[in-house]
Amino acid sequence: MPDFISIFKKVSTKILEDWGMMLVDEEANAKAMFDPNQKYYVSVVAFKGHGTIDGNYSVICQSPFINALASNLLGVDDPLTEEQKADALKEMSNVLTGNLITEFYGADVSFDLLPPESFTMDPELAFTILDSKRTLAFCADDTPVAISFSLENPT
């Protein structure tokens, strides 16, 4: 498990830095970083491993993270639409999932990635996920973001 978590941290940090173009620090207390008065957004990508392993990775965040991410990806001078912001979050979870499964299971295993879904999350459910040992929290460009996973072996 420690190896899994260290790879999970390493890849998550790399994707936030390389794809999101963000300065990233790992944070120990996920729940304390988030603003309870703001909406929680989540983007999930599920994957199926043809009998090896199924699961999903999700990115949990609030508006400041989405705004910073979308601005970094498209440039701060461009006006950003709500659709672009949602799309930036979905693509982050997509890139993250694609890289995590390759890192964990190697290039010889094929996975089907389902299209990313994003939605707002009930605060109580968000707290539960943020408290979970399956969730890592980061401070990215001074905004909180958490990355969580759920895995199941279908055999």
Binding site: V95, T97, G98, N99, I101, T102, A107, D108, V109, S110
Partner: peptide, 10 residues
């Protein structure tokens, strides 16, 4: 340009 890293698909 893809996230896909599976060798058989590449």
């Amino acid at each position: 340009v893809s996230t896909e890293g599976a060798q058989d698909r590449i």
